[in-house]
Simulated assay, not measured.
Amino acid sequence: MRIGILKEIKSEERRVALTPGGAADLVGRGHQVLVERGCGDGAGFTDEEYITHGATIADSAQSVFDQADLIVKVKEPQAEERARLSEDQVLFTYLHLAADAAQTAELVERGVTAIAYESVVGPNGGLPLLAPMSQVAGRMSIQAGAHCLESSQGGRGVLLGGVPGVAPARVVILGGGVVGRNAVQMAVGLGADVTVIDRDVSVLEDLNSRFGSALHTLHSSGGALEEAVLGADLVIGAVLVRGARAPHLVTTEMVKQMRPRSAVVDVAIDQGGCIETSRPTTHANPTYLAYDVVHYCVANMPGAVPRTSTFALEHATLPYIAMLADLGPREAMRSNPGLRAGLSICQGQVTEPAVAESLGLSFTAPEEVLGLSLTAA
């Protein structure tokens, strides 16, 4: 199979979907790996390294689109990339379609087969291709939040961990999943006063067992959440609903009542955000002020540490890329229900129920478009 790797063009995105070592693995399996010239520069991988490991260098993105059967990316295809996709191609990347009607409509129109990293389900029921970037984003959220609280960034001028005799900052983390756990680890490590809120009692019990008295846990309810948010110096939005748009847990009215120059970091922004006043920002212009609260809403946070992120992402995605290439996309999805769960668009139809529901579109089961018996699947 011809596997195409593109240079990411989303603002300030420096990750790459495949390292030279990953290319060598796929070439060793008998596949051709075609990489756009300079695609690895941002993450520290040279064209010469790719060539040494058996990849072929393409002089342009168009050349990759013209030749590749399977296109593997990091971020969702931008408008100019979507226009180059054809119906006989498979796209494997982060998509986050539930909050992006325009992208969804165009991928449906192009007839491409689109598989979303964030919706692939692992053998244990987790989200193995989302987890590594959630780990990075969770840890980065505390770094970013601490920076936002500095007065030079418009913040309250509060040091996250405080100093002897001065209270630490109050950090409230919404969601105790992968992002939330990693945010807790960083915030507790820096000495902040940390509260995590989740609706799953077992998640809270696990966090309490791990962090003990260094962490406050709250069961998610309207009153408890509002009280915690209004008293916070820093709020981390770490809520995930697989494949769907994130719910607005923090309303505009709540933001209006937050401490002046406090900060929010909405890690869920690529799924629409869980703070009502959030809107996507970039690494070039990461923050804005709304109702006297500093908002950090970068939709590709791990792109700021592209080398770490590229290795972490590839460790998770490479087995699935190999499966798609070795078996062919349809057979791979037929034989692996977890991979099939990531199928979001196929043959001009939306095959992810959460996306269809979020955007008010019709839904077709992936088993149907793949020619599988619904009862057998």
Rank of each mutant, 00 (worst) to 15 (best):
A98W: 08
T104M: 00
G165H: 06
L6H: 02
V171D: 10
L107K: 07
N124H: 12
L240M: 14
R199K: 15
T56M: 11
T19Y: 07
G44V: 11
A304L: 03
V121P: 00
A214G: 00
M133D: 03
H315F: 01
G22M: 00
P286R: 07
A246Q: 09
E49P: 03
E13S: 02
R84F: 03
A68I: 09
P366F: 11
A376H: 09
R245D: 06
R14L: 08
S63I: 06
T56F: 09
P319S: 02
R139I: 03
R245G: 05
P260I: 14
L97T: 10
V229K: 00
E109Q: 14
G243Y: 13
L327D: 06
D292S: 08
K73Y: 07
D69A: 09
R307W: 00
R2F: 01
R279A: 13
P366Q: 09
T282M: 03
A131K: 11
R199G: 15
Q153L: 01
H315T: 04
V305I: 09
E80V: 11
T46C: 07
G338F: 06
G177L: 11
Q347A: 15
L95D: 05
E118D: 01
T351S: 10
E87I: 02
D41K: 12
S358G: 03
P353Y: 13
D292F: 04
V72T: 09
V255M: 12
A83N: 04
P302H: 03
E80D: 13
R259S: 12
A116T: 10
S86V: 08
G162W: 02
A68T: 08
G328N: 02
G231Y: 13
A144M: 06
Q135S: 11
P123N: 10
H219Y: 15
V112C: 05
G44R: 08
R2T: 09
L225F: 13
V294S: 03
A325S: 04
P260G: 14
H248L: 12
V267W: 11
T56I: 14
A316C: 01
D198E: 14
A376Q: 10
A146W: 02
V172N: 07
F65I: 05
A167R: 08
Q103N: 11
L370W: 08
D41A: 15
I115V: 15
A98N: 06
L207D: 00
T308E: 02
L97V: 10
G177N: 12
G191I: 15
P329G: 04
V112H: 07
M301D: 01
H31E: 10
A102P: 01
F92Q: 05
D193V: 11
T52G: 02
A284W: 04
A214K: 15
F311N: 00
G22C: 00
I71S: 01
Q78R: 08
A312I: 01
N208W: 00
P164G: 02
Q271T: 12
I9F: 01
G111E: 10
V16Y: 00
G126Q: 09
Y291V: 00
V178S: 07
A83P: 01
M323D: 02
M133A: 08
L218C: 13
R82S: 04
Q78K: 06
Y320L: 02
P128H: 12
G338P: 04
P77K: 06
S151V: 05
T281H: 07
